[in-house]
Write a protein that binds this DNA or RNA. Structure first.
Lengths: 330, 330
DNA sequence: TTGAAAGCGCTAACAC
DNA sequence: GTGTTAGCGCTTTCAA
């Protein structure tokens, strides 16, 4: 089912069909009507691939991501809600991730789609610089600080500070931290906020209480096990994201520690699953959907040739649920 | 940055570059090495659009959806998890939805991407038949019963029956139902399950207690308001999906009705937000992530030329939370 | 008002 | 071992 099929059926050239389908002028009304009728009968729809190869604009917004995890899913909801009715199609693309291409996926995806398939891109948590992209790009929660493209993120330092402060206010003194992916800016900021709060409260920083979790379940499980089997184990853990916090909850359960009676846990992100964890997770909520929406706004502005803010930073807020409580008495 | 740039830089023809990049035989080792070096230097990546126009296979799986709503998001998580490491790229596509193309989006999307860009498709809640698609298709929770393509869904009748039964067991007798989208098979099945349970309990069916919610927030709000301002209002509402149930919760709150003291509410789907609703929503959980995973398995089987089950139906289960309680005494 | 033809970036026969 | 060439489906000059 191609444009040639339609042309043959209508007894006109493919050029004419193309004009009719795209609403160009210079076609007799009668011809146009006949072609349109055949298009409808045959259910012809112009191939996105072929037309995008030829045209410069496609009206497709690309969302480049490493996988459809809960974080990406929330952002997508916000992106989709904001983009509806604006005349753009959405194309969320996750390249085949394997170990040997785990780094640089964002540039690879951008090269593969950019220039032709998509008019612009929103890239989630890129870790490499995206200078010289062929289309406008908005980075959400990127590694590279303010370098290069336009950025949307949330206030990670303040969020982490609030989380740690919450634990301190509950009387905790031995507060551990499970780090995020050390190649991501957000992870450093969260650790920074954690250390700031300790400092403000006059609690000496203990390097032994900080472990790598890489924002990932498996690593965080190991980290949690290490921390919770320490001779003088922490009474509270601030995990760099919710996934890590879930791992902590799991390990605590295995070790027979009651949360929050024996151990308090705070996460970061407030993915929807946080509310159904057992116990329900106290965490720092990033306004993920709003971040997605803002990214769309910025991208559309860029595509319209307007300026857009270079850096939008949204506030993160503490959501107190059931995984935090007063520090156990010694 | 095209294949010609690489060819020029390497002093070879584009054909040679293509061979090297795709690992074809018939290239001198030295040449291949030089080309690979230039590819790396320039950061060249073959254009998905151009190559897919020429090739028959792209190793891209399409997921066609009407928008990134919570339902789609959960399925995507399952799809993504199952597809990882299988050598396929994922491309979730949501065409521009507006009022005049609201129906038939799935066929339009399929025509636009099919045959060239994607090797196969998973389509979420299609409402029209997809006969004669150019690529293998798996439908998730479709309208058209068993017609045409391969199907994954959950047991809507049993789920609705369980939900209604749960309310009956709590002593409710005036149990209302807010219907789903009447063009969707699932909506009919849920209503059927509701009526089955009433019948089993010997409760006469009252047409006045059934309203259209269309699986949508706005309509459901109206429906809930109608039901709850009835002279003899229901003591329980079974909503056809969680979004509708949220609308009920909202209206109940506005009217000063306490849930579950004055009114019990059950939803359907168990999207993550259900656990954080206030009060936390009792609902029927569809195994959305598993449904997504199964769809991938089936599609990959089809793509490998194997057979796949024509219809996979997964069980739905009751998740009791805080929005249901004993019927109020008269 | 219409159609012929070039070309977007790439791959695959086939010729050299 | 390498290059030439045709062509995937479409849009867009440009000539008829």
């Amino acid at each position: 089912m191609t444009i040639s099929d339609v042309a043959r059926e209508a007894g006109v050239s493919v050029a004419t069909v193309s004009k009719v389908v795209n609403g160009r002028y210079g076609v007799a009304a009668a011809t146009a009507e006949r072609v349109l009728q055949i298009v409808a009968d045959l259910g012809y729809e112009t191939s996105l691939v072929a037309s995008s190869l030829r045209r410069s604009r496609t009206n497709v917004l690309g969302i480049l991501l490493a996988g459809f995890d809960p974080f990406a899913a929330e952002l997508l909801k916000g992106i989709s809600a904001e983009a509806v009715g604006k005349g753009y199609e959405l194309l969320a693309y996750s390249g085949a991730i394997s170990d040997d291409n785990a780094v640089g996926w964002e540039r690879r995806s951008l090269s593969r789609l950019g220039g032709t398939l998509i008019d612009g891109a929103i890239i989630l948590t890129p870790t490499v610089s995206l200078q010289g992209a062929s289309v406008p790009v908005i980075s959400v929660d990127p590694h590279t600080g303010t370098s290069g493209s336009h950025i949307v993120d949330s206030d990670n330092v303040a969020g982490a500070r609030t989380a740690t402060r919450h634990l301190i206010d509950l009387g905790h003194r031995r507060i551990a931290h499970i780090r995020g992916r050390t190649d991501l800016e957000s992870a450093h900021r969260r650790e920074h906020g954690y250390r700031l709060s300790l400092e403000e409260a006059g609690i000496p920083f203990d390097p032994e209480l900080v472990r790598d979790g890489g924002y990932r379940s498996a690593w965080s499980t190991d980290a949690a096990r290490d921390l919770l089997t320490l001779p003088d184990r922490p009474t509270a853990i601030f995990a760099a994201n919710d996934l890590s916090a879930f791992a902590v909850l799991q390990v605590a359960h295995e070790l027979g520690l009651r949360v929050p009676h024996d151990l308090s846990v705070v996460g970061f992100d407030d993915i929807p699953e946080a509310a159904s964890a057992s116990p329900r997770l106290t965490t720092i909520a990033q306004p993920l959907q709003e971040m997605g929406a803002r990214a769309v706004t910025m991208l559309l502005a860029l595509l319209d040739g307007h300026d857009a803010e270079t850096h939008v930073r949204l506030p993160a807020r503490l959501v107190v649920r059931k995984s935090t409580g007063p520090a156990p008495q010694r």
